[in-house]
Design a binder for these strands. Structure first.
Lengths: 279, 279
DNA sequence: GCCCATCGTCCAGCATACTGAACGGATGGC
DNA sequence: GCCATCCGTTCAGTATGCTGGACGATGGGC
């Protein structure tokens, strides 16, 4: 999204907000997060958000007093308290805690990189990551967002949506964002792939996110109404994705999904291979 | 801190803020983070913060529109975007990235739980964690804060402060918070321990944070002026802390500190044991 | 089953947070 | 070395966001 488009969006959102200063503070944090690492001064923020310079300065000072942003030189960057709040959020999501425990117990998958993400619009937000013994440092950091249409987690989550919901999300989304030459770029191709995901019982990302890396994903239903579907994935270098290993990893993913869907029952009566995703 | 005391603090802070809505929004997020997992309605938040109910509702709605809080039932809880922003903050701290790379290369320590934290007042905020193969799930989650006076990271960081700075932080801090019967509880005992840390070159937490768990810590200097001192620690069950193993872990900690203090030089000319912390 | 307490939401008036312009300082180009 | 430019900060006036009270809905307690 361009800065101009964002400015319009923010203005529109602000006109409806009953606490504009808070909405603006959020826009500032978003902007700082995009250019993370680089500090931005009040003038630059004001220009890019299309807001008065003084107001930005006042809000930034308030944010700095609370530690949500930190002063670096004369500008502002994201602050330490965001790590605290982000950690508190992740700790409040039961799925995240259970994911960490369940992932390291998987017989085969625990050696690989396993991730948990949640669908939000047409993007996946990554909430947790189990690091296997394989050094795949290419994986997403926690909190990062990636297009749902090119990731294994995203396609697993999208495949579980009712048709009407999927149509709403895809409306006006063309062309789809692509990260590699293999990325699915059209809605038609995506729909065909989602059908395959439902039949197969798991999703695939064959070098659609990063070249040389493949992922397999399964859907995990949300536990509260309104909670978007979650998904878990296993990431590995394509060279390691042998025909012997893949079925074992898929089995582990299904086991993980079952445990996270209903931890009590799955914990007492563990099942094994052949579990289907949508009975 | 009691709710009443917090309310007074917030009021005082707010009286000086030029963007009170933002300061209040931060107070709301803090409160939700303390009772993470539990949703709170506008009335409860208003009561505990000593602020008008309507204002709280307006701010919460603005926060919810941005995803910083989520509506659960009719109340509010921490939102998904906090994970996004927290991850972006952590990604912007170079030390965090280098810590992950350096920790997994330590010859002995990489098998244990290693953590990176930063001093903030008299508390340590945990920024990164390397999970070894030992299942010590007792360790702090990222973003969590613990008293500096009872943790290995905290005592390592405090030991590096100039006397005047330390005095300022300790002013009015008595009695010190304690987590176990072993926790240091008095400022005198703390000062004595910090002297020992400086002589030894590393800090110890012998069941002061969690019973049955010991930690060793070293200080890592900040890179920018005003950045509080950082510290790294190795955590392990007391049963594993044998007299043979401890020196190896201390060596690894010193190596880690050296690499993170000056990554370029340390990377080219790696040294080994016997490195002192404050040359 | 009734009632009361408590909740979340809505609305109009007032105090106040936001705005726009002016100021002093720092920076880079000529 | 000078000037022009941009920055961050300050300040007073005014539009506007905040407040307190009232409303309807909800859910325990007796």
């Amino acid at each position: 999204m361009t800065d101009a488009a964002r400015a319009i969006d923010e203005t529109a959102a602000e006109s409806e907000s009953l606490a504009p200063a808070v909405t603006r503070a959020g826009a500032i944090l978003d902007l700082l997060a995009e250019n993370a690492g680089k500090a931005a001064g009040p003038s630059e923020l004001a220009r890019r958000l299309g807001l008065p310079k003084s107001s930005i300065a006042n809000i930034c000072n308030a944010l700095a007093d609370m530690g949500l942003v930190r002063r670096v030189g004369t500008g502002f960057a994201l602050g330490r308290k965001l790590a605290e709040l982000g950690g508190a959020y992740l700790a409040s999501v039961d799925l995240v805690q259970e994911f960490y425990e369940a992932a390291q117990l998987l017989p085969v998958g625990s050696e690989e990189t396993i991730q948990l993400a949640v669908l939000d619009g047409l993007e996946m937000t990554y909430l947790a990551r189990h690091d296997g013994r394989q050094p795949v440092r290419l994986t997403s950091q926690i909190g990062r967002r990636l297009p749902a249409t090119v990731t294994a987690t995203g396609k697993a989550a999208l495949s579980s949506l009712p048709d009407a919901d999927l149509d709403d999300r895809l409306a006006g989304a063309s062309p789809l964002p692509t990260l590699t030459p293999n990325s699915i770029g059209t809605i038609e191709a995506l729909r065909a792939d989602l059908v395959a995901v439902r039949e197969r019982g798991y999703s695939m990302d064959d070098e659609e996110t990063v070249e040389g890396v493949v992922c397999y994903g399964v859907m995990i239903p949300g536990r509260r109404p309104g909670e978007g579907p979650y998904a878990a994935s296993i990431t590995l270098l394509k060279a390691r994705a042998t025909e012997e290993r893949i079925p074992l990893l898929i089995d582990d993913l299904h086991r993980l999904a079952e445990q996270l869907s209903d931890p009590l029952r799955a914990g007492r009566v563990p099942r094994h291979a052949g579990v289907v995703q949508n009975p």
